[in-house]
Design a protein around this nucleic acid. Sequence first.
DNA 1: TATGAATGAGATTTCATTCAT
DNA 2: GATGAATGAAATCTCATTCAT
Lengths: 230, 230, 230, 230
Amino acid sequence: MDTTAPEEIDGEKAPPMAPLSHLREPPTTKRGARTRAALVKAARKVFERDGYLDTRLTDITKEAQCAAGSFYTYFANKEEVLAAVLLEAQEDMLHPGMARVAGTDDPYAVLEASNRAYLQAYKRNAKLMALLEQVAQVEPEFRAFRSLRADAFIRRNARGIADLQARGVADRAVDPMLASRALSGMVSVMAYNAFVLGEQQEEGTPVDFEELVSTVTRLWANALRFPGHG
Amino acid sequence: MDTTAPEEIDGEKAPPMAPLSHLREPPTTKRGARTRAALVKAARKVFERDGYLDTRLTDITKEAQCAAGSFYTYFANKEEVLAAVLLEAQEDMLHPGMARVAGTDDPYAVLEASNRAYLQAYKRNAKLMALLEQVAQVEPEFRAFRSLRADAFIRRNARGIADLQARGVADRAVDPMLASRALSGMVSVMAYNAFVLGEQQEEGTPVDFEELVSTVTRLWANALRFPGHG
Amino acid sequence: MDTTAPEEIDGEKAPPMAPLSHLREPPTTKRGARTRAALVKAARKVFERDGYLDTRLTDITKEAQCAAGSFYTYFANKEEVLAAVLLEAQEDMLHPGMARVAGTDDPYAVLEASNRAYLQAYKRNAKLMALLEQVAQVEPEFRAFRSLRADAFIRRNARGIADLQARGVADRAVDPMLASRALSGMVSVMAYNAFVLGEQQEEGTPVDFEELVSTVTRLWANALRFPGHG
Amino acid sequence: MDTTAPEEIDGEKAPPMAPLSHLREPPTTKRGARTRAALVKAARKVFERDGYLDTRLTDITKEAQCAAGSFYTYFANKEEVLAAVLLEAQEDMLHPGMARVAGTDDPYAVLEASNRAYLQAYKRNAKLMALLEQVAQVEPEFRAFRSLRADAFIRRNARGIADLQARGVADRAVDPMLASRALSGMVSVMAYNAFVLGEQQEEGTPVDFEELVSTVTRLWANALRFPGHG
DNA sequence: TATGAATGAGATTTCATTCAT
DNA sequence: GATGAATGAAATCTCATTCAT
């Protein structure tokens, strides 16, 4: 949707992951760094496999092939490893290789590219998104993080909508922020259904990716009354 | 959106709550019925207050003013009480006092009434919806129930969309089912954000209910290219 | 020393064991009462045998022949059982079958009887006193209890000293409270050395009980300049 | 009380701190000596601040600004550092800059000077005395050390009492050793109450130091029936 | 049916001590 | 000697579920 680098949207580079930054000092030695990395990697794997709640700390240390006590050298509890996991993944989750469509200004093309990029990123990180949804239901800290991530997209898209309204391309009757909430939400539910729920239940027709992209794009464009795509 | 009784949508009366029907025989004595009812009522209260995961069985029995052991006379575990709770509430959650707009066939008016009814029902049962979202993340059984509920709306709306397409009122370029998924999803996210998340965090502007209704209705109508609302 | 019932010393019946009264509801059933009693009894035994610090909760439940979890039906932690143990024993520890010497008003005889009673009670409860000394070093709550107990005696004896001063029998040059602190302290150290330390180290001459009584009594009487015992 | 150098009291120079002498070879290098000294100093500080039991080895090494592992180069465990700490302090604790009252032989004046010196030393080392009391409840090794220290004073004072009895100044009816135990104990309890407990609880009237000295001295003198101080 | 105490598996967490660098 | 991460044996505490009364 938008064509600016995400950091510049609000005119400032927001501190990312504010709610999750209770992290302690990074290890000083190489060995320490290795162990910590092994723990984070193991945590991600186990979380994605078993879910946050069913994961016991020892599952993580077992997977990381270290002693139970070693966990506490780097993290105070399950929440903290999860924060580390998300911190490592957030770059890819938040900035989905932006939608700069070469050589065009066509709003529809830009919108489609934006949606495609979002959905690709969602798909790529589907397991982590599933995890985030689960954790957000359980730990307020991560509920805040989920909101943060959602808001990043919503604001970006709101800015895009406002631009198009200014250019006379989008319906001026709707509040850009509210419309963005609704339409961004629409895309994210579709993504959740397709890539999270769609995977869990083997049955059912998996939606075709391109059909997904084109459907949400068309609905979005129509909703804002882009001209000429009748 | 639709104008038919919900049960007839698919041409058959689907067994509601299929995933939740592991319930045992109802109590035979009056006393038993009273105890069971007290437990279900207490469970709903405690679940809504503390969340599913943080609720201990003894919290429920304490609230119901009966002994811990009595619980097992009626339910095998926490899941079963929750099923009972949802079963009692599902009527209101599924059939939001339908949108039969007296004396009009105006698709826009019907759509708006439908959305208003949906959002009102969501708001009315917001705590239960929050609970359902939480539980769906944790117990596959209830994930299925959540899907069931969502699908009921989606199918209903898909039928509505197909009707409008047949009448030439809605854009025929989109698949009615896919469009319904997207647009129904859009409305439900908005509801979740407004009535579940909006309540949890005291800060922030609570969205005005009528603005919510009109925004989602306008976007929906536009997305399907209803004529004449330019 | 004094001849009044201890409760009346301060003109009011002080709430005994104030610092230790975090006890929860007593069990309702007979079975519960039995289990609780078994736990308290077992706790006393194990505490006296192994010391407070080296006692694990499971040692207590093992001794009481019940499951580890049952402990928490009655007590929140080790401190609480200890409080219960001390509560049960406090009567005997605080009111050592008072020194009412029949048919005499002889201050020396009264003093001696008082000291004998004190030392007998100390000896009788020597293991518990040892425990209390240990715990007082570790848990502030019990430090307060120890002080409470000590103060009960000190105030009682201060009252006795003041009486004797009024009757012209005791040296008026000393502050009764300060003198009582010193002399009561003297007796309690002797008791601690004899009955706590004396037992722990098998070697060494165990002091003769009557010699102990007569020595502290003589020193006490002299210190206050009782007349006529030259 | 006594007028002889402490080492000569028993006619022999007793090996001081016998129970604590499991110490290993002193470090050979300067660097080693420095590290060891830092550890002992840190240990004293942390022990006095947090108590023996609540002190973790890493608290000490952190305070000493060295690595956890370095601790084991010099000490086998917590007990050993404590022994080192006490060893360094024992000189001042045992030989309180003796009471040689210039130009007088007045037993009362000597006694008072002796008590003042003892109480001053106690006050000076109050935190260490508190520590010693705590540790004595927990580690038999240090219980023995505490006894050793107490006995040093008791024997010294017993010798003094015997001298005075020989000179006809003190009551011959009491056993000098037993009397010394009682009276020395009296002084030490007062010191403990004033300087250890008195500090812990901010409330309450702190006893005036000189009043303390004069009270215990008067009671002590009276107890032994020093003549002429009526 | 109702009661409420008893059970015990299982998860988290601490920290003295070891050991590779 | 010094470092600081790794180890793993405890110990506490929770709570769903059972069961005797």
